[in-house]
């Protein structure tokens, strides 16, 4: 089905789902395209037979039919409902379906704001937002990690129902992905894997983990955080994995001195998180997860390189991500104490 046909097919679906007598889908336009999903903006006007009307400014997420999905549309929709109920700032989930568009999709409330990291970190108009963000990001992570585990929404996530150590699982998964995907050997990654194996944190918890929590995946207004987006890598694991990922070197957008996504210091983030959770963060464990996060992003760059080499996409930006692997090796060498300075 051509995306231009989506609005006409959504209208009867919306009537059936909402009980409205009439539904109109307007303002339809493409937002982003990706390897596994596409996003469109649209405005939903619903009218019931008793005269009631409701308007939703919405985002339609359409999953590619053949795309390999980290999470199915229905699972991701249920997860959004669960974290919304737990007080995490997310776009309100509206409708989920499969048949109406010939492939899985869901609709969420459209939240205005800026998601492009470079602008959030650099633009003058986000000065106040940057001052507020470390505390807001810490509080949002605390809310994510406090989401009740019991219930069907989280039961389908990777890592759910396991009794083993989340640290072991995370290490095994990233090493397996690296060995499966790497076209050439990366001695820097081998060194990092070796280091991680010898510096495992003693204690760990198992909570919901967002999996891709960083500047670039949050919607920000001039006052600060509005919503946490991009839940497709959510899983059950150690909560500090999210904090280490957020501090990764590759999303500071030029403000490399500010580990918390280029908007604040690592310590400001940790203090906000500690205040929101009421629990102290083990700094050595956080360091472990920061090393892990940089390695994980390094392996993800290899995944994208593989897609380029195999001709799945010939885009120049995908090609250039292959030359960003060295950045992660460089940061890993610094973090594990193998590089002087800094």
């Amino acid at each position: 089905m051509d995306p231009a046909e989506f609005p006409a097919h959504l209208e009867p679906f919306l009537c059936a789902q909402s009980g409205a007598a009439r539904a109109r889908v307007g303002g339809f336009r493409s937002l982003t395209g990706g390897a596994t999903r596409r996003a469109f903006a649209c405005d939903l006007d619903l009218t019931w037979s008793d005269g009631r009307v409701l308007r939703h400014e919405a985002v339609l997420i359409v999953f590619r039919p053949a795309g390999q999905q980290a999470l199915a549309a229905r699972s991701e929709f249920a997860l959004l409902e669960a974290v919304k109920a737990a007080g995490v700032p997310v776009p309100c989930p509206l409708f989920v379906g499969e048949e109406a568009l010939g492939r899985p999709f869901y609709l969420v409330e459209r939240i205005a704001g800026e998601a492009i990291g470079r602008r959030i970190v650099r633009d003058e108009r986000f000065v106040a937002a940057r001052a507020a963000l470390p505390a807001q990001l810490g509080a949002a992570l605390a809310a994510i990690h406090a989401t009740p585990i019991a219930g069907p929404a989280l039961a389908v996530l990777p890592g759910a129902g396991e009794s083993g150590d989340p640290v072991e699982r995370a290490l095994a998964d990233i090493e397996a992905l690296y060995r499966q995907i790497a076209v050439e050997a990366h001695p820097g990654f081998e060194l990092a894997l070796r280091w991680l194996g010898k510096h495992r944190p003693a204690g760990s918890a198992r909570t919901l983990v967002h999996g891709d929590f960083r500047i670039g995946n949050v919607m920000v207004g001039e006052e600060g955080l509005r919503a946490v987006l991009d839940w497709e890598l959510a899983h059950m694991g150690d909560p500090l994995e999210d904090l280490g990922w957020l501090c990764g070197r590759s999303w500071r957008f030029g403000r490399i001195d500010l580990a918390c996504g280029g908007v604040g210091t690592r310590e400001a983030l940790v203090e906000a998180y500690e205040q929101a959770t009421g629990r102290a963060v083990d700094r050595a464990a956080l360091h472990f997860w920061e090393v892990f996060g940089n390695l994980r992003w390094g392996v993800f760059t290899l995944v994208q390189l593989r897609a380029f080499i195999e001709g799945i996409s010939r885009d120049v930006e995908l090609a250039m991500i292959g030359r960003r692997t060295a950045e992660t090796e460089w940061e890993l060498l610094r973090l594990i104490g193998a590089r002087g300075g800094g």
Partner: peptide, 29 residues
């Protein structure tokens, strides 16, 4: 460990000299 990291430091810096020269000078937090 010291010998291998000495080598990797130079090898990775050589890659960055082509892909992202500014990063070699960085002093991250």
């Amino acid at each position: 460990f010291a010998r291998v990291t000495h080598h990797l430091r130079h090898a990775v810096a050589a890659k960055l000299a082509v892909s992202d020269p500014a990063m070699i000078e960085d002093t991250s937090d």
